[in-house]
């Protein structure tokens, strides 16, 4: 079974790589089969590790134990079932109910937590080193780094501030912001190359080592 698995995996690996030459039936075969398997896999997990523990089990428990509080859990289950209204065009508007609840929950909890984690804590992180400078705890390079960070953050924010026309001093500051952004994007590109090549190395290692046993 293990050997068969390796050969099957190698076959599909080569089917996908055949796309490097050009689009062809082998690639399309693998691509479509992959989509089907992924969806099937998703269905199994959604049911076994989502709907059963979160909806079916509480439902069954509420029914068998006949507890009033347990029956309250039927309300979200019923709301969730409204997603199926999508298949009946006449009642498809009912799908807005569960979507509205999910979006409301998401928006409500985002406001305080995002404000704290991504605004206050980030501003705090930017300004903390200046307290340390004042206390004489930082060396020359750290002080330079702290100033550079503050300048970078202000300039980048200015670049994204579209309520004022980017001319004169604002234009100059936003141009410095672009410099920081470009270096940031450059570093992201460099790391992306590493990420993509890692995937290739793993597949080549599989073909040479597990399949062809050359290593």
């Amino acid at each position: 079974m293990e050997v068969l698995g390796i050969w099957v995996a190698a076959f599909f690996t080569l089917c996908i790589y055949s796309f490097l030459y050009r689009d062809n039936p082998f690639y399309r075969f693998a691509e479509h089969l992959f989509v089907g398997l992924s969806v099937g896999y998703g269905i199994v997990f959604s049911i076994h590790q989502g709907l059963i523990p979160f909806a079916w089990d509480p439902f069954w428990e509420a029914i068998t134990k006949r507890e009033f509080m347990g029956l309250l859990k039927l309300i979200p289950i019923f709301i969730g079932l409204l997603f199926f209204a999508r298949v009946v065009p006449k009642y498809s508007w009912l799908i807005r109910y569960p979507i509205a609840i999910l979006i409301g929950i998401g928006a409500g909890r985002a406001i305080p937590n995002v404000m704290d984690a991504r605004i206050f804590r980030q501003v705090y992180g930017t300004l903390t080193p200046f307290g340390q400078i004042h206390a004489g705890a930082l060396g020359f390079f750290e002080i330079f780094g702290a100033i550079l960070m503050l300048v970078g953050v202000i300039c980048t924010l200015t670049y994204f501030f579209f309520s004022i026309e980017h001319r004169g001093a604002v234009g100059g500051i936003s141009k410095v912001g672009i410099i920081f952004l470009m270096v940031g994007f450059g570093s992201a590109f460099g790391n992306t190359v590493m990420g993509r090549v890692s995937l290739l190395i793993q597949r080549v290692d599989f073909l040479l080592s597990d399949w062809l046993r050359l290593i």
């Binding site: 995002v114 404000m115 991504r118 605004i119 980030q122 501003v123 992180g125 930017t126 780094g145 550079l148 960070m149 300048v151 970078g152 953050v153 202000i154 300039c155 980048t156 924010l157 670049y159 994204f160 912001g177 410099i179 920081f180 952004l181 270096v183 940031g184 994007f185 570093s187 992201a188």
Partner: peptide, 15 residues
Amino acid sequence: NPNLSSRRGIILGVS
């Protein structure tokens, strides 16, 4: 340094 600053600017703006 420069990457951190630009990313922080983006995080603040997006947030």
